[in-house]
Amino acid sequence: MATLHTVNKSPFATGALLSCIAHAKDGDTVLMIEDGVYGASSGTNVSDALTARAGSVTLCVLGPDFAARGLATDRMLDGIKSVDYAGFVELAASNDRTQAWL
């Protein structure tokens, strides 16, 4: 019984990403979309918080949003999986519920 969490805010603008990973249960998936993808880069002030959960929570980023913002794939935080919209759908279908951290 797992949850797909979506976060669509930059972690440098709101606390949504940090709140999300603080509430996600082991086995859940956190997908960063829209401005949320800024959280997926390495070397930021939220990187450590994400890395700390990377073993128990699956961290994903919506590739099209990442690419749209010109973010460099080689600077993506280790352990983050990039998915396209089809992958987003698959995550939503395979988890038991979804929760949007608006």
Partner: peptide, 14 residues
């Protein structure tokens, strides 16, 4: 995003 999601979901047979 909602549109792209819906389109992909329908394409995947959902």
């Amino acid at each position: 995003t909602a549109y792209n999601f819906a389109k992909s979901a329908l394409e995947a047979g959902h």
